[in-house]
Design a protein around this nucleic acid. Structure first.
Lengths: 215, 215
DNA sequence: TAGGTATTCTTGCATGTGGAGGATAACTTG
DNA sequence: CAAGTTATCCTCCACATGCAAGAATACCTA
């Protein structure tokens, strides 16, 4: 098995990149067409113009590929989350929340296919954890006075941050429900409805210390 | 395919009940032992002492069985959610939240197996939607003055209730993260940490009408 | 560019999947 | 209890899965 390391690919064999990216693009395309459960490994390999056994050289199953394939998309989503940071005293704090929903809507087919009932538990868990981490570090950055950048330890080693898990789950819940209904409202409306709820959590957060992460 | 109707089984062939219940019990037992992805239909059928083809007479795949199998357990969880109702002015409002986490911990293996990264997107979605419905009807019951019982329409037909989806997702998020870490804190601690967050949403809910469900 | 290395491809296999058709057995109703 | 209904079981099938061993090929480095 050959796997590209998490970040900042320094020197990766061209063939590996080509194969992995082809497989990821193929999956993303296919998820837009039919349910994940109706997509076979052979389908993905064929769509990627790669042999079926090359698939197994990189990924154990479709879910592992899906997790890898959605990473770039997820990063985009997470990038639109600094709105959750209380220091962000923009004139319109819902702007980046709006970007979040817009981003979601833009790839609605993909997101619904991976996060919905026919999707992958692995992807759902991955997304939730990534957002949890983002919320966690944003909160710590605020609390610690914007000082040194936190050591980027995996969330698995950190204490259980209930508010972060709460917030992340809430965002995923709203997103999933919105996608399930076929995005019946504009990103602006969704942002306007969601923002007060997030704000209530923030104000509580900074106001009452008794509820923070458990040791 | 033979399927038992949703509620209040009036007259179901004894054989159907026996087979379905045996399959569900078998799955629940197996999920406690290994990952869902490592459980084959043949395994479940054998554990249930039922032929493999009888499985397909009732369920399309393992996820459909899992959804059916967890329904009873989910009902227990949802039963411990009236704490979310603002009218509930108990002396200790975290009591039923505590029951929620205790319930979760009691079947930790099952819940982690079905809701975690190796679980089933179908189950995750099902749980989230059930909780969303529960929160939604609880909120409406409160707002409408405890009057007539709402027509029990499926959540799919109702307008998108952002606060309900938000709350439900949040609970699932906290539960998933807690389970993932191996339930490192007592249900009492978890309830104490989670309650203020829920309360903040409630107070906002009753205080500011601008953010309700979208039409 | 030549050479060693690493990746991909081909082939093959044991097992799991999803389901159709028909025989057998169990249940419900009159 | 007898008759008819209905679920389960058995046997088959085509296809998908996950993986292994070795040949063929593309890549990186010197």
């Amino acid at each position: 098995m050959v796997t590209v390391g998490g970040s900042s690919t320094p020197k990766v064999d061209r063939r590996v990149r080509r194969t992995q990216e082809a497989l990821q693009r193929a999956l993303i395309r296919l998820v837009g067409e039919r349910d994940l459960s109706q997509i076979s490994i052979a389908d993905v390999a064929e769509q990627a113009e790669v042999s079926r056994s090359a698939f197994y050289d990189h990924y154990r199953d479709v879910h592992e590929l899906a997790e890898a394939a959605c990473t770039a998309v997820i990063d985009d989503l997470i990038a639109s989350l600094p709105a959750l940071d209380p220091v962000n005293t923009d004139e319109d704090p819902t702007r980046s929340l709006q970007a979040f929903f817009a981003n979601l809507a833009e790839h609605a087919g993909l997101h619904r296919g991976l996060l919905g009932p026919q999707g992958s538990a692995r992807v759902i868990d991955h997304v939730r954890r990534r957002i949890t981490e983002a919320v966690h570090t944003a909160a710590r950055r605020t609390a610690a006075g914007d000082g040194a950048p936190e050591s980027a330890a995996s969330a698995a080693d950190l204490p259980l941050d209930v508010p972060a898990a709460f917030t992340a789950g809430a965002l995923v819940g709203v997103a999933a429900e919105w996608l399930r209904r076929g995005c019946p409202h504009s990103p602006a409306e969704m942002a306007a409805s969601t923002w007060p709820l997030l704000a209530a959590l923030h104000h509580l957060d900074v106001g009452t210390p008794p509820c923070r992460q458990l040791p």
